[in-house]
Simulated assay, not measured.
Amino acid sequence: MTAPEALRAALVTALTDSGALTADWARAFAAVPRHEFLPATIWADENGGDTECSRTVDPEQWMRLAYSDVPIVTQWDDGSEGDRSTPTSSASMPTMVAEMLSDLDAHPGHRVLEVGTGTGYNAALLAHRLGDANVSTVEVDPQVTTAARAALERAGYIPEVVCGDGALGWGVRAPYDRLISTVSLRDIPPAWLSQTRPGGVIVSPVSPLLGGGAIVRLTVHGDGTASGRFTRSAAFMMLRQQRYEGAPVDDYLPDEWPGDAEQSWTKLDPEAIGDDWLAQFACALDLPDVYYRRNLFGGGWTWWLFDTAVTSWATVDSAPGESQYEVRQSGPRRLWDELEAAHDRWTAAGRPGYERYGLTVTATGQTAWLDEPTNPLGWSTLAT
């Protein structure tokens, strides 16, 4: 079996050659043993599927996966027993880890708060470069916290590991020079702003309700606000406190479909949005209170659109080979019309990438913008 040191060196070389790993973080990646932070059974996202691998059954494959540039699921369904349905903890893809640390721009002497300890690997990288005393990490799940703390100690790192609500940050050691989240969210918590010093940086995945996701890099200002641009696409597990459960369909449609819905037609296939992560993200910034579900229908899909206020809904049938698609809409809002208009605005703007979008956050809410803060989009949410 190939030694883990050789596999780790090969991963560092690959990340460096790709440009994801910068020289200031290369020593940490070369030193921290990623495999020491993984459980005996893992699920690696190779070839679009979560492949289960046991260290006991196939130690060579397990070790290879530990140093592959793939995300690895380490927990399902918040640790509950039974059928696996939703991944709830993981070791992030090394490329993403390296790129987010580059975005963070942390330097020796900086005090850092990490939200979402997970396996503890990212905290170990931070501790290796910045020192144990400068790193605090918060994890909501007690079992995950215990496992991460033990893995860190085995690897020789003793940052502060706290079991708590990451949305509240960790005020005990504030203010921080840097804050990094390894869980996604819709709304940046106000506590993160107040616990980061002026001039400090917050790096976090953001996942709007409609879909898509990206990393945002915010700079905290002296007035307690923060602003910055998105840097790249990202798909992370949601902060537990911001998971969204939509209302039952019957709350929107108490009678048989189509009820009082008005019929119309569109030439935009909803799958053109569903198959495009960037398009979803751009439309989601315009429509922060709209979400969708998809159901198989014949040889295609039926899209259901809903608003969080439970006032309006719409359906669109996507059928392969068709040039127009049936739309039904009900309620005071015409949700498909709004989504189509958001897609048209994105297209008219030249299909801008993530780096042209940004976010401004205050203690009471946040607003997304295109190119400049003076060009706000529809996404303006009140903090809860």
Rank of each mutant, 00 (worst) to 15 (best):
S92W: 10
M100G: 12
S181N: 10
L179I: 13
T196D: 07
G212T: 07
R173G: 03
G171A: 15
D132I: 05
D141C: 04
G171C: 07
I202W: 01
G131T: 04
A151Q: 05
M96D: 10
V112P: 02
L101Q: 08
P189S: 09
L130A: 10
D141F: 02
P189Q: 06
P108W: 10
T117I: 11
P142E: 12
Q143S: 14
D103L: 12
R197F: 03
R129Y: 12
A91R: 07
T95M: 10
G212N: 03
M93W: 02
L130D: 09
M96F: 14
I180K: 03
G116W: 01
S181P: 09
T119D: 06
I180S: 06
L193R: 05
P142M: 11
R173V: 04
E160F: 10
L101T: 08
P189R: 02
A174I: 06
W192Y: 06
A98S: 13
V161S: 01
V97T: 15
A127L: 02
L185P: 10
V161T: 11
G109I: 08
G120H: 07
A174K: 03
P208I: 04
S207G: 08
M100Q: 13
P108R: 07
A127W: 03
S136K: 00
T117E: 12
V140N: 05
L209N: 04
D103W: 13
V135L: 08
E99H: 09
L125P: 04
V183K: 03
L152I: 02
G199L: 10
V183L: 12
T145E: 09
R186H: 10
S92I: 06
H107K: 14
R129S: 12
V115Y: 00
P94K: 01
P189E: 05
A106F: 01
T137A: 03
P198M: 12
P142A: 13
V162Q: 00
A123H: 07
S181K: 09
G200W: 00
H107N: 11
R197I: 04
L101S: 12
G116S: 09
S204T: 15
G212D: 07
L101K: 10
L193G: 03
A133P: 03
R197K: 15
E139T: 03
E114W: 00
V172I: 14
T196G: 06
D165T: 07
R129W: 13
W170E: 01
V161C: 00
H110C: 14
H107E: 14
V203H: 06
A98L: 11
G131K: 11
C163S: 13
V140D: 04
A133L: 13
V112G: 04
A191Q: 12
I188N: 00
P108K: 06
L104Y: 11
R154P: 02
R186V: 11
Y121T: 05
V183F: 05
V112K: 05
V161N: 02
N122G: 08
H128Q: 14
S204L: 13
A214H: 06
D187R: 13
M93Q: 15
H128Y: 15
W192E: 01
Y121E: 02
R111L: 13
A133F: 11
A123V: 09
D165W: 03
A123T: 15
C163W: 04
D187T: 12
G116N: 09
T137M: 00
A191C: 00
P189W: 02
I202F: 00
V140F: 13
R173K: 13
P175C: 05
R173M: 02
